[in-house]
Write a protein that binds this DNA or RNA. Structure first.
Lengths: 249, 249
DNA sequence: CGTGCATTGTACGTTATCGAACCCTTCCTG
DNA sequence: CAGGAAGGGTTCGATAACGTACAATGCACG
């Protein structure tokens, strides 16, 4: 039987806890709103909080020495940002920032470690999630080397759709270009191709996914490879994405 | 005081253990020789053994659906292959294979988990190593997207040098091309540039690092970024690489 | 000691993306 | 409602790597 507050929690890790462990952590969690562009962790600096995502999604970015950021992974309600503290990390190796606006439960690192020490199931889930995130990053490494932007863009949109749960995303091509580490004009070309195919619709910072199946066909295998790993932890519906088909106007 | 057998162990994780924990694991370890090209784990299949590397190095590879393998990380005597089992993984997401010939201590997964459950320091070290490997993979993801082959080749040679400990490596350009996910002819061009600069010498499957500093200058920041993380766990000398300068003939 | 194969060097047309610029459209704001 | 800024489409020469082919070289083995 779940804890009485647990039914309102959308985070998959928190939702999966038994009532006894949920009770241990819920009082330590602080609900926070994440604004667009808000940075949760800075590369090289101490991790002060762990964020269990409730809605929206968070990008983990590596910042190269020329200042160019590049996304290595996405975190949504299936996971948490800052979990590397349970592996013994004290400082963040990456920049994590919210790309969408959204909500999260925040917990200070000390309290987090204290809770985890007494909640073996939570600990197991977090370790397992850390592994899944690692798999996501590894697939991205291969993807960045082998697949062209058309496939990578489709993959990214699918991942973003999964984690946001809504078919319309407020994202500029400029932002997506930064995430994927390419020129905006290159994104524009790839996005135009998808738009002409009727798969997505672009309109001034708003992108609507019209045909999810079409997007899956346009994406490289990397999307499915990672999604399959997530299913192994969270079951058949690891994400919130609905199979919404919006008819073209 | 270390265990009496511990002084012969080159693996950094095993060597760092207190005698009591070392005693728990040493009887379960089987010394094995790794032959060139030997596969330790196959993508998608159960992880049956964990390998604590003693000499040589191991590549972790993602295999894309077109059959093209692509290296995501290197494992040497500073780490172990198969550590993701402590994160709860049962199957390997990557292919791990020995590129050099070398030695390792092998332990079955069940025995490994049993030992880890009773050796908190070992567990902490392994978790920390899993994190370091994650950082390495994340940096590779960014590197694959942003840096040209000249820089990536230099970075790879440095990492291989670190982990092998000897300035001469038995590696064909063909093999390196597979690791880096590019054509062999592209490797040949980049390697020729390094050779003309007097940084390395190539001769029929044998590559000699002549000028380590020169190689570091030719490499992208990604080498140093990862090496710095490793130093945070293992101290100032995380690898066995000597600063050998072999004069040109 | 010579032959054969593995390894490396090189060439060339093709493709994807870079890097930078310019213009048009849409939305926001005063 | 008008002006301006933000976002998006497009162009173009430059570059890195592809994909493929072939020649040259050095080592192993008979």
């Amino acid at each position: 039987m779940p804890h009485r507050l647990q039914k309102n929690v959308r985070n998959r890790i928190l939702a999966a806890l038994a009532a006894e462990e949920f009770k241990l952590i819920i009082d330590k969690l602080q609900r926070v709103e994440l604004t667009l562009g808000e940075t949760l962790h800075r590369a090289g600096e101490p991790i002060e909080n762990v964020f269990f995502v409730e809605s929206g999604f968070i990008s983990a970015l590596t910042v190269l020495s020329d200042g160019a950021p590049l996304e290595i992974g996405l975190i949504g309600a299936e996971g948490a940002a800052g979990v590397s503290v349970i592996l013994g990390a004290t400082n963040s190796y990456s920049e994590t920032m919210c790309q969408t606006g959204g909500g999260a439960y925040r917990i200070g690192v000390l309290a987090f470690k204290e809770v985890v020490a007494h909640a073996p199931h939570l600990r197991d889930l977090l370790l397992r999630y850390a592994h899944l995130f690692h798999v996501q990053v590894a697939q991205t490494a291969a993807c960045n080397a082998h697949h062209d932007l058309g496939q990578r863009l489709a993959r990214w949109l699918l991942a973003a759709h999964d984690r946001s749960g809504v078919p319309e995303l407020s994202l500029t091509q400029d932002l997506i270009a930064v995430m994927l580490g390419v020129r905006r004009s290159t994104v524009s070309i790839a996005a135009s191709t998808l738009q002409r195919a009727g798969v997505i619709r672009y309109q001034h910072g708003h992108i609507t996914i019209l045909d999810r199946m079409g997007l899956e066909n346009a994406a490289c295998e990397c999307y499915e490879a990672v999604a399959g790993e997530y299913r192994s932890l969270f079951g058949e519906q690891p994400f919130e994405s609905a199979m919404v088909i919006v008819p073209a106007p």
